[in-house]
Design a binder for these strands. Structure first.
Lengths: 228, 228
DNA sequence: GCAAAAGTGTTTATGTTACACCCATGT
DNA sequence: ACATGGGTGTAACATAAACACTTTTGC
Protein backbone atom coordinates (compact mmCIF):
# COMPACT_ATOMS: atom_id res chain seq x y z
CA UNK A 1 0.00 0.00 0.00
CA UNK A 2 1.40 3.35 -0.97
CA UNK A 3 0.68 6.74 0.44
CA UNK A 4 -1.55 7.54 -2.50
CA UNK A 5 -4.12 5.19 -1.17
CA UNK A 6 -4.69 7.30 1.87
CA UNK A 7 -6.17 10.12 -0.22
CA UNK A 8 -9.92 10.52 0.03
CA UNK A 9 -11.75 8.73 -2.74
CA UNK A 10 -14.87 9.59 -4.66
CA UNK A 11 -17.79 7.21 -4.23
CA UNK A 12 -18.45 5.08 -7.28
CA UNK A 13 -21.85 4.20 -8.68
CA UNK A 14 -23.34 2.74 -11.82
CA UNK A 15 -26.48 4.03 -13.53
CA UNK A 16 -28.44 2.36 -16.31
CA UNK A 17 -30.42 3.95 -19.08
CA UNK A 18 -32.88 1.22 -20.01
CA UNK A 19 -34.59 1.50 -23.36
CA UNK A 20 -37.66 -0.38 -24.44
CA UNK A 21 -40.04 -0.30 -27.35
CA UNK A 22 -43.78 -0.68 -27.09
CA UNK A 23 -44.52 -1.06 -30.78
CA UNK A 24 -44.81 2.60 -31.52
CA UNK A 25 -42.48 4.68 -29.38
CA UNK A 26 -39.17 4.43 -27.60
CA UNK A 27 -39.46 4.05 -23.85
CA UNK A 28 -37.21 4.53 -20.86
CA UNK A 29 -37.43 2.73 -17.54
CA UNK A 30 -37.17 4.93 -14.46
CA UNK A 31 -37.47 4.34 -10.75
CA UNK A 32 -38.95 6.59 -8.16
CA UNK A 33 -36.50 7.48 -5.44
CA UNK A 34 -37.57 6.67 -1.91
CA UNK A 35 -34.86 8.51 -0.03
CA UNK A 36 -33.19 11.89 -0.01
CA UNK A 37 -31.76 13.54 -1.95
CA UNK A 38 -34.40 13.82 -4.65
CA UNK A 39 -36.85 11.63 -2.69
CA UNK A 40 -39.97 11.21 -4.82
CA UNK A 41 -38.15 12.16 -8.03
CA UNK A 42 -37.67 9.82 -10.92
CA UNK A 43 -34.16 8.56 -11.57
CA UNK A 44 -32.17 6.03 -13.53
CA UNK A 45 -31.82 2.66 -11.86
CA UNK A 46 -28.37 2.28 -10.35
CA UNK A 47 -26.37 2.22 -7.17
CA UNK A 48 -23.01 1.76 -5.53
CA UNK A 49 -20.32 -0.48 -6.92
CA UNK A 50 -19.15 -3.12 -4.50
CA UNK A 51 -15.48 -3.78 -3.93
CA UNK A 52 -15.28 -7.19 -5.48
CA UNK A 53 -17.52 -6.88 -8.53
CA UNK A 54 -16.68 -5.42 -11.89
CA UNK A 55 -18.59 -2.50 -13.36
CA UNK A 56 -20.89 -4.43 -15.65
CA UNK A 57 -21.71 -6.89 -12.89
CA UNK A 58 -22.61 -3.99 -10.63
CA UNK A 59 -24.88 -2.55 -13.30
CA UNK A 60 -26.61 -5.89 -13.82
CA UNK A 61 -27.03 -6.43 -10.10
CA UNK A 62 -28.59 -3.02 -9.56
CA UNK A 63 -30.79 -3.45 -12.57
CA UNK A 64 -32.15 -6.72 -11.26
CA UNK A 65 -32.55 -5.45 -7.72
CA UNK A 66 -34.41 -2.34 -8.74
CA UNK A 67 -36.36 -3.45 -11.79
CA UNK A 68 -36.26 -7.23 -11.93
CA UNK A 69 -34.64 -7.18 -15.37
CA UNK A 70 -31.92 -9.69 -16.12
CA UNK A 71 -30.07 -10.96 -19.13
CA UNK A 72 -30.50 -7.77 -21.12
CA UNK A 73 -28.22 -6.17 -23.65
CA UNK A 74 -25.91 -3.89 -21.67
CA UNK A 75 -23.08 -1.71 -22.77
CA UNK A 76 -20.93 0.86 -21.06
CA UNK A 77 -21.78 4.38 -22.10
CA UNK A 78 -19.71 7.03 -20.39
CA UNK A 79 -18.59 8.09 -16.93
CA UNK A 80 -19.99 11.16 -15.26
CA UNK A 81 -17.87 12.63 -12.53
CA UNK A 82 -18.28 16.36 -12.18
CA UNK A 83 -17.91 17.45 -8.58
CA UNK A 84 -21.32 18.73 -7.57
CA UNK A 85 -23.37 16.30 -9.65
CA UNK A 86 -24.50 14.72 -6.36
CA UNK A 87 -25.39 17.04 -3.49
CA UNK A 88 -24.16 14.49 -0.96
CA UNK A 89 -20.54 14.76 -2.03
CA UNK A 90 -18.24 13.47 -4.72
CA UNK A 91 -19.88 10.62 -6.55
CA UNK A 92 -18.60 9.35 -9.86
CA UNK A 93 -21.02 7.29 -11.89
CA UNK A 94 -20.31 4.89 -14.71
CA UNK A 95 -23.35 4.98 -16.99
CA UNK A 96 -24.57 2.00 -18.99
CA UNK A 97 -27.23 1.69 -21.55
CA UNK A 98 -29.48 -1.31 -21.75
CA UNK A 99 -31.92 -2.57 -24.36
CA UNK A 100 -34.72 -4.87 -23.36
CA UNK A 101 -36.97 -7.01 -25.48
CA UNK A 102 -40.67 -6.59 -24.81
CA UNK A 103 -40.89 -10.24 -23.78
CA UNK A 104 -38.84 -9.33 -20.76
CA UNK A 105 -40.60 -6.12 -19.82
CA UNK A 106 -41.70 -6.31 -16.21
CA UNK A 107 -45.38 -6.27 -17.13
CA UNK A 108 -45.55 -3.09 -19.16
CA UNK A 109 -45.55 -0.47 -16.46
CA UNK A 110 -44.86 -1.05 -12.81
CA UNK A 111 -43.44 -4.29 -11.60
CA UNK A 112 -45.82 -5.13 -8.72
CA UNK A 113 -44.62 -3.29 -5.63
CA UNK A 114 -41.45 -1.84 -7.09
CA UNK A 115 -41.32 1.74 -8.14
CA UNK A 116 -40.10 1.16 -11.67
CA UNK A 117 -42.11 2.58 -14.53
CA UNK A 118 -41.79 2.93 -18.28
CA UNK A 119 -42.01 6.40 -19.80
CA UNK A 120 -42.24 7.59 -23.35
CA UNK A 121 -38.74 8.74 -24.28
CA UNK A 122 -40.20 12.01 -25.48
CA UNK A 123 -42.23 12.74 -22.36
CA UNK A 124 -39.96 12.23 -19.41
CA UNK A 125 -40.52 13.71 -15.97
CA UNK A 126 -37.77 15.82 -14.38
CA UNK A 127 -34.95 13.55 -13.31
CA UNK A 128 -32.77 13.45 -10.21
CA UNK A 129 -29.08 14.40 -10.23
CA UNK A 130 -27.62 14.84 -13.72
CA UNK A 131 -29.63 11.92 -15.01
CA UNK A 132 -31.17 14.01 -17.75
CA UNK A 133 -27.79 14.54 -19.34
CA UNK A 134 -26.89 10.87 -18.94
CA UNK A 135 -30.10 10.05 -20.71
CA UNK A 136 -29.32 12.53 -23.47
CA UNK A 137 -25.96 10.88 -24.01
CA UNK A 138 -27.59 7.47 -24.13
CA UNK A 139 -30.13 8.56 -26.69
CA UNK A 140 -27.46 10.04 -28.87
CA UNK A 141 -25.47 6.84 -28.63
CA UNK A 142 -28.48 4.71 -29.47
CA UNK A 143 -29.28 6.82 -32.51
CA UNK A 144 -25.71 6.58 -33.72
CA UNK A 145 -25.38 2.91 -32.98
CA UNK A 146 -28.56 1.69 -34.58
CA UNK A 147 -27.36 2.92 -37.94
CA UNK A 148 -24.38 0.61 -38.15
CA UNK A 149 -24.87 -2.11 -35.58
CA UNK A 150 -27.67 -4.61 -35.18
CA UNK A 151 -28.96 -3.34 -31.87
CA UNK A 152 -32.52 -2.78 -33.01
CA UNK A 153 -33.26 -6.46 -32.58
CA UNK A 154 -32.55 -6.13 -28.86
CA UNK A 155 -35.67 -4.01 -28.59
CA UNK A 156 -38.02 -6.34 -30.46
CA UNK A 157 -39.38 -9.74 -29.57
CA UNK A 158 -37.39 -12.64 -31.00
CA UNK A 159 -39.87 -12.97 -33.83
CA UNK A 160 -40.93 -9.72 -35.43
CA UNK A 161 -42.37 -8.31 -38.62
CA UNK A 162 -40.52 -5.99 -40.94
CA UNK A 163 -43.10 -3.33 -40.23
CA UNK A 164 -42.28 -3.51 -36.53
CA UNK A 165 -38.61 -3.19 -37.31
CA UNK A 166 -39.25 -0.20 -39.52
CA UNK A 167 -41.43 1.49 -36.92
CA UNK A 168 -38.64 1.01 -34.41
CA UNK A 169 -36.06 2.58 -36.70
CA UNK A 170 -38.38 5.45 -37.41
CA UNK A 171 -38.99 6.00 -33.71
CA UNK A 172 -35.30 6.06 -32.89
CA UNK A 173 -34.08 8.04 -35.88
CA UNK A 174 -37.13 10.26 -35.68
CA UNK A 175 -37.78 10.38 -39.40
CA UNK A 176 -39.93 8.41 -41.81
CA UNK A 177 -38.31 5.72 -43.92
CA UNK A 178 -39.45 4.43 -47.29
CA UNK A 179 -41.07 1.04 -46.83
CA UNK A 180 -39.80 -0.58 -50.01
CA UNK A 181 -36.27 0.72 -49.66
CA UNK A 182 -36.11 -0.28 -46.00
CA UNK A 183 -37.20 -3.85 -46.68
CA UNK A 184 -34.95 -4.16 -49.70
CA UNK A 185 -31.92 -2.99 -47.80
CA UNK A 186 -32.44 -5.04 -44.67
CA UNK A 187 -33.19 -8.19 -46.58
CA UNK A 188 -30.14 -7.69 -48.78
CA UNK A 189 -27.93 -8.38 -45.75
CA UNK A 190 -29.16 -11.86 -45.27
CA UNK A 191 -29.13 -12.00 -41.53
CA UNK A 192 -32.91 -11.69 -41.34
CA UNK A 193 -34.47 -15.11 -41.58
CA UNK A 194 -38.07 -15.27 -42.76
CA UNK A 195 -40.08 -17.74 -40.70
CA UNK A 196 -43.00 -19.88 -41.76
CA UNK A 197 -45.24 -18.08 -39.41
CA UNK A 198 -47.34 -14.97 -39.51
CA UNK A 199 -48.39 -12.30 -37.07
CA UNK A 200 -52.06 -12.25 -36.19
CA UNK A 201 -53.87 -8.95 -36.24
CA UNK A 202 -56.86 -7.16 -37.55
CA UNK A 203 -55.66 -7.23 -41.15
CA UNK A 204 -53.50 -9.10 -43.53
CA UNK A 205 -51.02 -11.15 -41.47
CA UNK A 206 -47.36 -10.18 -41.74
CA UNK A 207 -44.53 -12.60 -42.13
CA UNK A 208 -42.40 -13.04 -39.02
CA UNK A 209 -38.62 -12.88 -39.15
CA UNK A 210 -35.83 -13.45 -36.73
CA UNK A 211 -32.35 -12.01 -36.51
CA UNK A 212 -29.60 -14.54 -37.16
CA UNK A 213 -26.69 -13.37 -35.08
CA UNK A 214 -24.34 -16.06 -36.40
CA UNK A 215 -24.86 -14.91 -39.96
CA UNK A 216 -24.41 -11.30 -38.94
CA UNK A 217 -21.16 -12.04 -37.17
CA UNK A 218 -19.83 -14.02 -40.09
CA UNK A 219 -20.47 -11.01 -42.30
CA UNK A 220 -19.08 -8.56 -39.76
CA UNK A 221 -15.83 -10.48 -39.62
CA UNK A 222 -15.47 -10.05 -43.34
CA UNK A 223 -15.21 -6.31 -42.84
CA UNK A 224 -18.83 -5.72 -43.53
CA UNK A 225 -20.71 -2.74 -42.19
CA UNK A 226 -24.36 -2.13 -42.59
CA UNK A 227 -25.52 1.43 -42.74
CA UNK A 228 -28.92 2.88 -42.81
CA UNK B 1 -24.38 11.81 4.81
CA UNK B 2 -25.99 8.43 4.59
CA UNK B 3 -24.77 5.05 5.68
CA UNK B 4 -23.87 4.14 2.13
CA UNK B 5 -20.97 6.45 2.24
CA UNK B 6 -19.25 4.39 4.88
CA UNK B 7 -18.72 1.52 2.45
CA UNK B 8 -15.15 1.05 1.22
CA UNK B 9 -14.58 2.78 -2.10
CA UNK B 10 -12.45 1.86 -5.07
CA UNK B 11 -9.61 4.22 -5.86
CA UNK B 12 -10.22 6.30 -8.99
CA UNK B 13 -7.64 7.12 -11.63
CA UNK B 14 -7.50 8.50 -15.14
CA UNK B 15 -5.27 7.17 -17.91
CA UNK B 16 -4.58 8.78 -21.27
CA UNK B 17 -3.84 7.12 -24.56
CA UNK B 18 -1.95 9.82 -26.43
CA UNK B 19 -1.68 9.45 -30.17
CA UNK B 20 0.73 11.30 -32.40
CA UNK B 21 1.78 11.16 -36.03
CA UNK B 22 5.34 11.52 -37.26
CA UNK B 23 4.56 11.83 -40.94
CA UNK B 24 4.54 8.14 -41.68
CA UNK B 25 3.20 6.13 -38.75
CA UNK B 26 0.87 6.43 -35.83
CA UNK B 27 2.62 6.88 -32.51
CA UNK B 28 1.73 6.46 -28.86
CA UNK B 29 3.22 8.33 -25.93
CA UNK B 30 4.19 6.19 -22.94
CA UNK B 31 5.93 6.86 -19.66
CA UNK B 32 8.31 4.63 -17.82
CA UNK B 33 7.13 3.84 -14.34
CA UNK B 34 9.51 4.69 -11.52
CA UNK B 35 7.72 2.93 -8.69
CA UNK B 36 6.21 -0.45 -7.96
CA UNK B 37 4.14 -2.13 -9.13
CA UNK B 38 5.51 -2.50 -12.65
CA UNK B 39 8.53 -0.28 -11.87
CA UNK B 40 10.57 0.06 -15.05
CA UNK B 41 7.65 -0.93 -17.27
CA UNK B 42 6.06 1.37 -19.79
CA UNK B 43 2.58 2.62 -19.03
CA UNK B 44 -0.03 5.13 -20.10
CA UNK B 45 0.29 8.54 -18.49
CA UNK B 46 -2.30 8.96 -15.75
CA UNK B 47 -2.90 9.11 -12.04
CA UNK B 48 -5.35 9.62 -9.24
CA UNK B 49 -8.37 11.84 -9.49
CA UNK B 50 -8.49 14.54 -6.85
CA UNK B 51 -11.65 15.22 -4.91
CA UNK B 52 -12.46 18.60 -6.32
CA UNK B 53 -11.57 18.21 -10.00
CA UNK B 54 -13.68 16.70 -12.74
CA UNK B 55 -12.50 13.76 -14.78
CA UNK B 56 -11.29 15.61 -17.82
CA UNK B 57 -9.46 18.12 -15.66
CA UNK B 58 -7.72 15.26 -13.87
CA UNK B 59 -6.68 13.76 -17.19
CA UNK B 60 -5.30 17.09 -18.41
CA UNK B 61 -3.46 17.70 -15.16
CA UNK B 62 -1.81 14.29 -15.21
CA UNK B 63 -0.95 14.66 -18.85
CA UNK B 64 0.79 17.92 -18.25
CA UNK B 65 2.56 16.72 -15.11
CA UNK B 66 3.87 13.59 -16.72
CA UNK B 67 4.49 14.61 -20.31
CA UNK B 68 4.35 18.40 -20.47
CA UNK B 69 1.50 18.30 -22.99
CA UNK B 70 -1.31 20.80 -22.66
CA UNK B 71 -4.20 22.04 -24.72
CA UNK B 72 -4.58 18.81 -26.67
CA UNK B 73 -7.68 17.16 -28.09
CA UNK B 74 -9.02 14.95 -25.32
CA UNK B 75 -12.06 12.75 -25.18
CA UNK B 76 -13.37 10.22 -22.71
CA UNK B 77 -12.98 6.67 -23.94
CA UNK B 78 -14.21 4.07 -21.50
CA UNK B 79 -13.87 3.09 -17.86
CA UNK B 80 -11.90 0.05 -16.80
CA UNK B 81 -12.77 -1.38 -13.44
CA UNK B 82 -12.23 -5.10 -13.21
CA UNK B 83 -11.16 -6.11 -9.74
CA UNK B 84 -7.63 -7.35 -10.11
CA UNK B 85 -6.56 -4.98 -12.87
CA UNK B 86 -4.25 -3.34 -10.32
CA UNK B 87 -2.28 -5.61 -7.95
CA UNK B 88 -2.44 -2.97 -5.22
CA UNK B 89 -6.19 -3.26 -4.80
CA UNK B 90 -9.37 -2.03 -6.37
CA UNK B 91 -8.57 0.77 -8.76
CA UNK B 92 -11.07 1.96 -11.34
CA UNK B 93 -9.65 3.97 -14.19
CA UNK B 94 -11.42 6.31 -16.57
CA UNK B 95 -9.51 6.15 -19.84
CA UNK B 96 -9.20 9.10 -22.21
CA UNK B 97 -7.76 9.35 -25.62
CA UNK B 98 -5.77 12.33 -26.74
CA UNK B 99 -4.54 13.53 -30.12
CA UNK B 100 -1.56 15.83 -30.33
CA UNK B 101 -0.33 17.93 -33.21
CA UNK B 102 3.35 17.47 -34.03
CA UNK B 103 3.99 21.15 -33.24
CA UNK B 104 3.25 20.32 -29.64
CA UNK B 105 5.26 17.13 -29.40
CA UNK B 106 7.70 17.39 -26.53
CA UNK B 107 10.71 17.34 -28.82
CA UNK B 108 10.05 14.12 -30.69
CA UNK B 109 11.10 11.55 -28.13
CA UNK B 110 11.89 12.19 -24.51
CA UNK B 111 11.06 15.47 -22.91
CA UNK B 112 14.33 16.39 -21.21
CA UNK B 113 14.47 14.61 -17.87
CA UNK B 114 11.01 13.09 -17.96
CA UNK B 115 10.49 9.46 -18.81
CA UNK B 116 7.99 9.99 -21.60
CA UNK B 117 8.73 8.51 -24.99
CA UNK B 118 6.96 8.08 -28.31
CA UNK B 119 6.56 4.59 -29.72
CA UNK B 120 5.36 3.34 -33.06
CA UNK B 121 1.77 2.19 -32.53
CA UNK B 122 2.66 -1.12 -34.15
CA UNK B 123 5.75 -1.79 -32.04
CA UNK B 124 4.83 -1.22 -28.45
CA UNK B 125 6.69 -2.63 -25.49
CA UNK B 126 4.80 -4.70 -22.90
CA UNK B 127 2.61 -2.39 -20.85
CA UNK B 128 1.84 -2.22 -17.15
CA UNK B 129 -1.56 -3.16 -15.69
CA UNK B 130 -4.28 -3.65 -18.33
CA UNK B 131 -2.95 -0.75 -20.36
CA UNK B 132 -2.59 -2.91 -23.45
CA UNK B 133 -6.33 -3.44 -23.56
CA UNK B 134 -7.02 0.23 -22.91
CA UNK B 135 -4.77 0.99 -25.83
CA UNK B 136 -6.56 -1.51 -28.00
CA UNK B 137 -9.88 0.13 -27.22
CA UNK B 138 -8.42 3.54 -28.03
CA UNK B 139 -7.08 2.38 -31.36
CA UNK B 140 -10.40 0.89 -32.30
CA UNK B 141 -12.15 4.12 -31.35
CA UNK B 142 -9.71 6.21 -33.34
CA UNK B 143 -10.17 4.04 -36.41
CA UNK B 144 -13.92 4.30 -36.14
CA UNK B 145 -13.93 7.98 -35.40
CA UNK B 146 -11.63 9.15 -38.13
CA UNK B 147 -14.04 7.88 -40.74
CA UNK B 148 -16.86 10.21 -39.80
CA UNK B 149 -15.39 12.96 -37.68
CA UNK B 150 -12.67 15.45 -38.46
CA UNK B 151 -10.19 14.22 -35.89
CA UNK B 152 -7.36 13.62 -38.33
CA UNK B 153 -6.50 17.29 -38.27
CA UNK B 154 -5.71 17.03 -34.57
CA UNK B 155 -2.74 14.88 -35.51
CA UNK B 156 -1.29 17.14 -38.18
CA UNK B 157 0.33 20.56 -37.95
CA UNK B 158 -2.03 23.46 -38.52
CA UNK B 159 -0.85 23.75 -42.11
CA UNK B 160 -0.50 20.49 -43.93
CA UNK B 161 -0.45 18.99 -47.42
CA UNK B 162 -3.08 16.67 -48.80
CA UNK B 163 -0.42 14.00 -49.11
CA UNK B 164 0.26 14.21 -45.37
CA UNK B 165 -3.44 13.93 -44.68
CA UNK B 166 -3.72 10.91 -46.91
CA UNK B 167 -0.70 9.23 -45.34
CA UNK B 168 -2.30 9.77 -41.94
CA UNK B 169 -5.56 8.19 -43.02
CA UNK B 170 -3.72 5.28 -44.55
CA UNK B 171 -1.70 4.78 -41.36
CA UNK B 172 -4.78 4.77 -39.15
CA UNK B 173 -7.06 2.76 -41.40
CA UNK B 174 -4.19 0.51 -42.38
CA UNK B 175 -5.04 0.34 -46.06
CA UNK B 176 -4.03 2.26 -49.16
CA UNK B 177 -6.33 4.95 -50.52
CA UNK B 178 -6.61 6.21 -54.08
CA UNK B 179 -4.92 9.59 -54.35
CA UNK B 180 -7.32 11.16 -56.80
CA UNK B 181 -10.44 9.93 -55.09
CA UNK B 182 -9.13 10.96 -51.68
CA UNK B 183 -8.36 14.51 -52.77
CA UNK B 184 -11.61 14.83 -54.67
CA UNK B 185 -13.67 13.72 -51.72
CA UNK B 186 -11.96 15.78 -49.07
CA UNK B 187 -11.99 18.92 -51.15
CA UNK B 188 -15.66 18.42 -51.98
CA UNK B 189 -16.50 19.14 -48.35
CA UNK B 190 -15.18 22.61 -48.42
CA UNK B 191 -13.74 22.77 -44.96
CA UNK B 192 -10.19 22.44 -46.26
CA UNK B 193 -8.83 25.86 -47.15
CA UNK B 194 -5.97 25.98 -49.66
CA UNK B 195 -3.29 28.45 -48.58
CA UNK B 196 -0.98 30.54 -50.72
CA UNK B 197 2.00 28.73 -49.40
CA UNK B 198 3.86 25.57 -50.26
CA UNK B 199 5.75 22.92 -48.39
CA UNK B 200 9.49 22.85 -48.98
CA UNK B 201 11.10 19.50 -49.70
CA UNK B 202 13.35 17.63 -52.03
CA UNK B 203 10.81 17.61 -54.84
CA UNK B 204 7.92 19.51 -56.23
CA UNK B 205 6.42 21.65 -53.45
CA UNK B 206 2.94 20.79 -52.28
CA UNK B 207 0.21 23.26 -51.55
CA UNK B 208 -0.53 23.73 -47.86
CA UNK B 209 -4.06 23.59 -46.49
CA UNK B 210 -5.70 24.24 -43.19
CA UNK B 211 -8.83 22.80 -41.61
CA UNK B 212 -11.61 25.35 -41.17
CA UNK B 213 -13.49 24.23 -38.10
CA UNK B 214 -16.14 26.92 -38.43
CA UNK B 215 -17.06 25.73 -41.90
CA UNK B 216 -17.09 22.14 -40.73
CA UNK B 217 -19.40 22.92 -37.85
CA UNK B 218 -21.74 24.88 -40.05
CA UNK B 219 -22.03 21.84 -42.29
CA UNK B 220 -22.33 19.43 -39.37
CA UNK B 221 -25.27 21.38 -38.00
CA UNK B 222 -27.04 20.91 -41.30
CA UNK B 223 -27.12 17.19 -40.67
CA UNK B 224 -24.06 16.55 -42.71
CA UNK B 225 -21.84 13.55 -42.18
CA UNK B 226 -18.60 12.92 -43.93
CA UNK B 227 -17.61 9.34 -44.46
CA UNK B 228 -14.50 7.87 -45.81
C1' DG C 1 18.36 15.15 -67.28
C1' DC C 2 16.61 12.29 -63.97
C1' DA C 3 14.44 10.90 -59.76
C1' DA C 4 10.64 11.84 -56.79
C1' DA C 5 6.49 13.55 -55.34
C1' DA C 6 2.39 16.80 -56.82
C1' DG C 7 -1.37 17.44 -59.31
C1' DT C 8 -5.40 16.55 -62.40
C1' DG C 9 -10.66 13.99 -65.26
C1' DT C 10 -13.27 10.63 -67.12
C1' DT C 11 -15.57 6.35 -67.36
C1' DT C 12 -17.87 2.51 -65.13
C1' DA C 13 -20.08 0.25 -61.52
C1' DT C 14 -22.64 0.42 -57.46
C1' DG C 15 -25.87 2.09 -54.36
C1' DT C 16 -29.66 5.30 -53.13
C1' DT C 17 -33.90 7.53 -53.89
C1' DA C 18 -38.47 8.19 -55.40
C1' DC C 19 -42.65 6.36 -56.40
C1' DA C 20 -48.11 3.39 -56.96
C1' DC C 21 -50.60 -0.46 -57.02
C1' DC C 22 -52.50 -5.17 -55.77
C1' DC C 23 -53.15 -8.58 -51.80
C1' DA C 24 -54.97 -10.81 -47.70
C1' DT C 25 -57.39 -10.52 -43.77
C1' DG C 26 -61.13 -9.10 -40.01
C1' DT C 27 -65.16 -6.77 -39.37
C1' DA D 1 -67.65 -4.83 -49.51
C1' DC D 2 -64.64 -2.04 -47.33
C1' DA D 3 -61.01 -0.57 -44.38
C1' DT D 4 -56.44 -1.55 -43.01
C1' DG D 5 -51.93 -2.70 -43.17
C1' DG D 6 -48.74 -6.22 -46.03
C1' DG D 7 -46.20 -6.83 -49.82
C1' DT D 8 -43.69 -5.92 -54.38
C1' DG D 9 -40.22 -3.58 -58.93
C1' DT D 10 -38.20 -0.14 -61.82
C1' DA D 11 -36.17 4.08 -63.53
C1' DA D 12 -33.55 8.31 -62.39
C1' DC D 13 -29.99 9.96 -59.91
C1' DA D 14 -25.92 10.32 -57.05
C1' DT D 15 -21.90 8.49 -55.20
C1' DA D 16 -17.80 5.48 -55.31
C1' DA D 17 -14.19 3.10 -57.71
C1' DA D 18 -10.80 2.37 -61.07
C1' DC D 19 -7.28 4.13 -63.62
C1' DA D 20 -2.26 7.08 -66.25
C1' DC D 21 -0.01 10.78 -67.49
C1' DT D 22 2.01 15.64 -67.03
C1' DT D 23 4.22 19.06 -63.88
C1' DT D 24 7.57 20.92 -60.80
C1' DT D 25 11.30 20.86 -58.08
C1' DG D 26 16.25 19.43 -56.07
C1' DC D 27 20.12 17.18 -57.03
Amino acid sequence: MTYTYEYPRPALTVDCVVFGFDGSGLQVLLIRRGVEPFAGSWALPGGFVQMEENLETAARRELEEETGLKGVFLEQLCTFGDPGRDPRGRVVSVAFFALVQPDQHPARGDTDASDAKWFEAGKLPPLAFDHASILGAALERLRGKIRYQPVGFELLPKRFTLAQLQTLYEAILDRPLDKRNFRKKLLSFDFLVPLDDYSGGAHRPARLHRFDRRKYEALARKGFLFEL
